[in-house]
Every structure is written in structure tokens, then in C-alpha cells.
Amino acid sequence: MQYTVSASVFLAIIIFVRLRRRTESRSRVDETLTVLSAATFGILIATTPLGQAVLHLVGVAADATH
């Protein structure tokens, strides 16, 4: 049996672990790395059906606020 791991799932796990840490102990470089990994995750997930669904929901929410 062979398992595959998606890069976006792996990156989501890393972001989840990094965000669970206390904010007082973060350095500026650590915060920058978290932001860059979150932006990369957003780019990776944007082309998936889940990303398209999130985009649609955000669009509906934005239209409802106008």
C-alpha cells in the first residue's frame, strides 16, 4: 500500500502547528515565515475545488454586505 501526501495538506499542518504557539514568544522572522507559508497555502489551495468553493462563499458574503 502506498500513501501520498499533498503539498497543501502538509503545509496546512505546518501552519496549524505554528499558529498554536504563543504569540509572545515569536520573533519577527518567525512571524514572517508564518505569513509566507499561509500565503503559499492560499496559492496552492486556490486551484482546487475546495479553494473555488471558499472563493464563491467569500464573494457571496462580500455581495451581501453591500
Rank of each mutant, 00 (worst) to 15 (best):
T48I: 06
H66A: 13
F10I: 04
G51V: 07
T65N: 07
A61P: 03
V5G: 00
L33Y: 06
T47W: 06
I14G: 05
V58Q: 11
A62K: 10
A64P: 02
L19A: 15
M1C: 00
T32P: 03
A38Q: 04
G59E: 13
V54S: 04
M1S: 06
V54D: 03
G59W: 09
F41V: 01
R28Q: 15
L50M: 14
A12L: 15
I15K: 08
V9I: 11
L33R: 10
Q52E: 04
I13D: 15
V5I: 09
D63V: 13
I13M: 15
V17S: 10
G51S: 11
T23H: 07
T4Y: 09
Q52M: 07
I45K: 09
S37M: 13
I43F: 00
V29F: 08
V60Y: 10
F16M: 15
A38D: 00
G51F: 04
E31M: 12
G51N: 04
V29R: 13
A61I: 11
L11Q: 13
T48E: 02
V58N: 08
T47S: 08
T34C: 12
T47N: 06
R28T: 15
L50F: 13
R21E: 11
I45G: 01
L44H: 03
L57H: 02
R20H: 09
V35Y: 09
F16P: 03
F10P: 00
S27I: 03
D30L: 11
L36P: 01
V60S: 10
G51R: 02
A38N: 00
H66S: 14
L36W: 06
R21W: 08
I15Y: 08
P49V: 03
E24D: 12
T40S: 09
T47V: 07
T48V: 11
Q2R: 07
V60T: 12
L36R: 06
V60G: 04
I15P: 05
V60M: 12
A46H: 05
L33A: 12
S37L: 10
V35K: 14
V60W: 05
L33H: 06
V35R: 12
Q52A: 07
Q2E: 12
G59I: 06
D30P: 02
T40Y: 04
A46W: 00
V5W: 03
R18I: 10
F41D: 00
A61S: 14
I15G: 02
L55P: 00
F41K: 00
R21Y: 09
I14C: 12
V58L: 12
I15F: 07
V9N: 09
V5K: 03
L11G: 01
A12Y: 14
T32V: 09
I43G: 01
F16H: 15
H66Y: 09
H56E: 02
I15H: 07
S6Q: 12
A62G: 04
S25H: 06
L33E: 08
R28E: 15
A53N: 01
V60K: 12
L57K: 08
H66G: 11
V9P: 01
R26H: 07
